[in-house]
């Protein structure tokens, strides 16, 4: 069996790549995908720890995260569609009307 720390390291790397994706991409769809990647990285850590402690709680938590992610994607994509309809663009760098 592989040492747990490898999983954690992998989880961290994936999380960081997701975070970098959120920061550098301007396409909201890819930003969204990066968020999903971060969630998956977290899920991976959850399952790894659950396995280490020989417990089911971590898995159940992952299950909830998945459902919440599904809901989030449904609403988020609906929002993106709506924004595109009104502005005919989805470039996040063109949306700064909330600036102070």
């Amino acid at each position: 069996m592989v040492d747990i720390s490898y999983y954690i390291l992998l989880s961290a790397v994936l999380f960081t790549i997701g975070a970098a994706g959120v920061l550098v991409r301007r396409n909201p769809l890819i930003i969204f995908m990066s968020v999903e990647l971060m969630l998956n990285a977290a899920n991976l850590a959850f399952v790894a720890f659950a396995s280490m402690h020989n417990s089911l709680d971590g898995q159940i938590f992952v299950f909830f995260v998945m459902t919440v992610a599904a809901a989030e994607v449904a609403v988020g994509l609906a929002l993106i569609v709506q924004i595109f309809k009104s502005r005919h663009s989805i470039n996040v760098d063109e949306m700064n009307s909330l600036k102070g």
């Binding site: 599904a70 809901a71 994509l77 569609v81």
Partner: peptide
């Protein structure tokens, strides 16, 4: 939550 998301998505689009 899933129900609400479903309704929300429908309403938004």
């Amino acid at each position: 939550l899933l129900l609400v998301a479903m309704v929300g998505a429908i309403v938004l689009t």
